[in-house]
Design a protein around this nucleic acid. Structure first.
Length: 421
RNA sequence: GUGACCGUAGCUCAAUAGGCAGAGCUCUGGAUUGUGGCUCCAGUGGUUGUGGGUUCGAGCCCCAUCGGUCACCCCA
């Protein structure tokens, strides 16, 4: 015997979880709009080509994608990240003719085929922002300020920010050459894992956790020493803007991004305890992405924030979301024909904007009262033979136990306003 | 893809040395036939993840498989 279960790495978000979700999403949306961002949603599926174009072949990103052929033979992929689809939409809909920058936010599902782990799922949810069409470093500053505002609102104001610049196509190649040369010379001293990384993606070696590699990485050439004039100035302005706002940060020259299209600014907010292991969001500038997609040069910057991770932190810190009260009124009914009255009165209450539920099935008054209490209702409205005969209802406060019998016509008024305590 | 640990009721967990699968919570019903919470009583609920093997006998030992958790790889 086995009932069906959800696929590995996915999750059901049950009713009791939703207060967290609505809280986080609502705050995110509110803050985004506060900063002038508008909502966009792209399809959950996209042409596989979209993600192939934005990444070097052989990247692990590709082999972690959920890719399939539809019946027409097209190769589609479940959206693994939010940025490329948004940039695609920007290009496709000619948004370069809108006032720049175009500032967009999304709340979307992301998919990646990997082994589930703490705060990592095959299907997860991201809140993300993308700002396109402007190269100004103050756009970067503003985006980081947006995140700070959001975290403060959520009670996560102590999250730490780290920033870096990874240069652009002018200066990064030289740095990569230098780094590769430096690491190759010391290859034997690196941990085995990092020797592999050196071959695959030298930047990743900088992220190492291996004791053996740490001293080597510590003395490795820093990207910041290789930045071209434009990138250097951009980074200076970013830092200056953050200072102006009093936003604390640390510069981490080893901070990189997994995707190939990032340039210049990269940043992460993370929690001290979990360390960079569990970044709550990652973001960066991607001034070359639009061109990689075949569009005109279009600068852009964005971030993706893991909603599951935010909720994880809220729970760890016992930060409860606002409680969601039960239906204000529960209608209970005993006797022939009383359920007709109950369902009609429920309709009247709802029409007046009062959330009301009735009980179902032939249950004892006791059982129905229990249900009303369990539902968290402020009032139980009792409709029995006496009430039915007299055209009245009995309203019992489940807060203080007081009750009164009133004409049906006074029901809505009686349960309106703050519940008596 | 690699490794470690773990799978007993819807949930949290028991089950002495291999010897009849249990408790609490939840849920349902009831405690003089119309009144919730607190209390009390009762009931529903399991092929011990699944499939093999060892044994007179397996929740317990062995193998496989699936799933969960964590770490690695990678990280959007």
């Amino acid at each position: 015997m086995s009932v069906p279960s959800n696929p590995r790495g996915t999750q059901d978000i049950l009713p009791e979880e939703w207060p967290y979700w609505t809280h986080v999403i609502r705050e995110a949306e509110e803050v985004a709009r506060l900063f002038g961002y508008e909502r966009i949603e792209t399809p959950t599926i996209a042409d596989t080509e979209l993600f192939l174009r934005t990444n070097d072949e052989g990247t692990d990103v590709l082999k972690e994608m959920y890719t399939f052929q539809d019946r027409g033979g097209d190769s589609l992929t479940l959206r693994p990240e939010g940025t490329a689809p948004v940039v695609r939409a920007y290009l496709q809909h000619g948004m370069s003719r809108r006032p720049q920058p175009v500032k967009l936010f999304y709340v979307e599902h992301m998919f990646r085929y990997e082994r589930p782990q703490a705060g990592r799922f095959r299907e997860h949810h991201q809140f993300g922002c993308e700002a396109l069409g402007v190269e100004d470093a103050y756009l970067d500053v503003e985006m980081i300020a947006l995140l700070r505002t959001l975290y403060e609102r959520l009670g996560l104001g102590d999250l730490r920010l780290q920033i870096n610049s990874i240069g652009d196509r002018n200066c990064r190649p030289a740095y990569l050459d230098g780094l590769r040369a430096y690491l190759s010379e010391r290859r034997e001293a690196l941990a085995p894992v990092d020797q592999e990384r050196l071959a695959r993606n030298p930047l990743r070696v900088l992220d190492t956790k291996e004791e053996r590699s740490l001293p080597i990485v510590a003395d490795a050439p820093s990207i910041l020493d290789f930045l071209c004039e434009d990138c250097r100035v951009h980074f200076e302005r970013l830092r200056h803007g953050l200072d102006v706002l009093g936003i604390p940060y640390t510069i981490n020259p080893t901070l990189v991004r997994g995707l190939d299209y990032y340039t210049r600014t990269v940043f992460e907010f993370y929690e001290e305890e979990h360390g960079a292991q569990l970044a709550v969001n990652g973001g960066g500038r991607y001034d070359a992405l639009a061109e990689q997609l075949g569009g005109p040069p279009t600068p852009g910057i964005g971030f993706g924030l893991g909603i599951e991770r935010v909720i994880l932190l809220l729970k760890e810190r016992d930060i409860g979301p606002p409680v969601c009260p039960g239906p204000r009124v529960s209608l209970v009914h005993v006797g022939q024909g009383t359920e007709d009255i109950a369902i009609r009165q429920a309709g009247r209450l709802r029409a007046a904007g009062i959330d009301a539920v009735m009980t179902f099935g032939d249950r004892s008054l006791r059982a129905q009262m229990r249900a009303a209490n369990a539902a968290g209702s402020a009032y139980a409205v009792i409709i029995g033979p006496d009430e039915a005969a007299n055209g009245t209802v009995t309203i019992r406060s489940l807060r203080d136990g007081s009750q009164e019998t009133v004409p049906e016509s006074l029901l809505v008024e009686a349960v309106s306003g703050p519940p008596r305590l």
